[in-house]
C-alpha cells in the first residue's frame, strides 16, 4: 500500500489538521495523590504521559545518571532534580521492550533535568531533592514535548516554586511548509525541532534539532513552534486554574 499524502496541496495534513493546528490536548493535575506530592497526566493527540513528583525532600543520591545527582549534591545551595522515565513496551506500534538504560531515554531525562533546574527556583530549597518520574503510556510523536509539559504540570501540582510554566512543542518542515505538532508519521518523514519556552514569553528553554535543515528554514520553524508553546501554556494554565477553583470550592473558603 502506498503512503498517504503527508501534506496535501489543499493544505490538509495526514490526520486532517492544517499546518498551524496542534492536536487535541487533554491534561489533568493531582491525578495520583497517594503516590506522589504532585502528579499530572497529559494527552497530546495519541501521545500519553503520566508524571509523578516526589519532594522536595532529603537527598538520597540516586536519580538520573547517578553521577549527575552526586555532582549536584556538592552544590548544596540548590535543589537537586532527579528524572527517570519509563517507556511502556505497549506504547509503540509494535510491542517492544526498552531497557532502562536506553540511550535515547537517558538523554531525554538529562534534557528535562537541565531545563527544570533553570525553571525551578532552586535556591529556595537548598540541600533537598525533587524526584520526577515519567511514564510514557502511548507514543504518537512528540514524546519529549509531552514529557516536558507533564513535568511542568506535576511540579505546579507539587507546589514547587517556578518562574513560569515550561511548555514545549514540535514543528517540522515538509518541503516548504512548516507543520506544527507532528504525529508519528509526520516525524518519520521530515526534519523537526522540539522547542520549549518559559510560559508565554519568548525565552527559549530548549531547542532540540536532530536533523539537518537549511538555515533559512529554521526561523519559520522556530516561530511556529513558539506559537505552539504559547498555545499549550494557555491550555495548561486553564487546567491549573480550573483545578484550583475546584480545590477552593471543596475546602469551602
Amino acid at each position: 500500500m502506498s503512503r498517504p499524502e503527508i501534506y496535501s496541496p489543499e493544505g490538509l495534513r495526514i490526520d486532517g489538521r492544517r499546518w498551524n493546528e496542534v492536536r487535541h490536548v487533554r491534561c489533568a493535575i493531582n491525578t495520583h495523590q497517594a503516590s506522589s506530592d504532585g502528579s499530572s497526566i497529559i494527552e497530546q493527540g495519541n501521545t500519553k504521559v503520566i508524571c509523578n513528583v516526589v519532594g522536595p525532600g532529603e537527598p538520597t543520591g540516586g536519580g538520573v545518571g547517578g553521577s549527575g545527582g552526586n555532582q549536584r549534591a556538592k552544590d548544596d545551595n540548590r535543589v537537586i532534580l532527579t528524572v527517570k522515565a519509563v517507556v511502556a513496551p505497549f506504547s509503540t506500534i509494535d510491542r517492544r521492550k526498552r531497557s532502562g538504560n536506553d540511550n535515547r531515554v537517558q538523554e531525554m531525562c538529562l534534557t528535562i533535568q537541565h531545563i527544570f533546574e533553570e525553571a525551578v527556583m532552586g535556591h529556595l530549597q537548598p540541600r533537598s531533592q525533587i524526584e520526577i518520574s515519567l511514564y510514557v503510556l502511548s507514543q504518537d510523536g512528540g514524546m519529549l514535548q509531552a514529557c516536558i509539559n507533564a513535568v511542568s504540570l506535576a511540579l505546579v501540582d507539587a507546589g514547587i516554586p517556578m518562574y513560569d510554566y515550561v511548555c514545549a512543542c514540535t514543528a517540522g518542515m515538509y518541503d516548504k511548509e512548516v507543520l506544527l505538532d507532528l504525529n508519528r508519521l509526520e516525524e518519520n518523514d521530515m526534519p523537526f525541532l522540539t522547542m520549549a519556552t518559559l510560559g508565554a514569553t519568548r525565552k527559549v528553554a530548549l531547542m532540540q534539532l536532530e536533523t539537518r535543515v537549511g538555515i533559512d528554514r529554521l526561523e519559520p520553524m522556530m516561530a511556529a513552534a513558539m506559537s505552539g508553546c504559547h498555545h499549550l501554556r494557555d491550555v495548561m494554565d486553564a487546567e491549573v486554574r480550573k483545578h484550583g477553583k475546584s480545590r477552593l470550592a471543596r475546602t469551602g473558603v
Partner: peptide
C-alpha cells in the same frame, strides 16, 4: 506479531 496502528482523524 501484532502491530498496532493508531491514527487520529480530525473532522472539521
Amino acid at each position: 506479531k501484532a502491530t498496532k496502528i493508531v491514527q487520529e482523524h480530525y473532522l472539521r
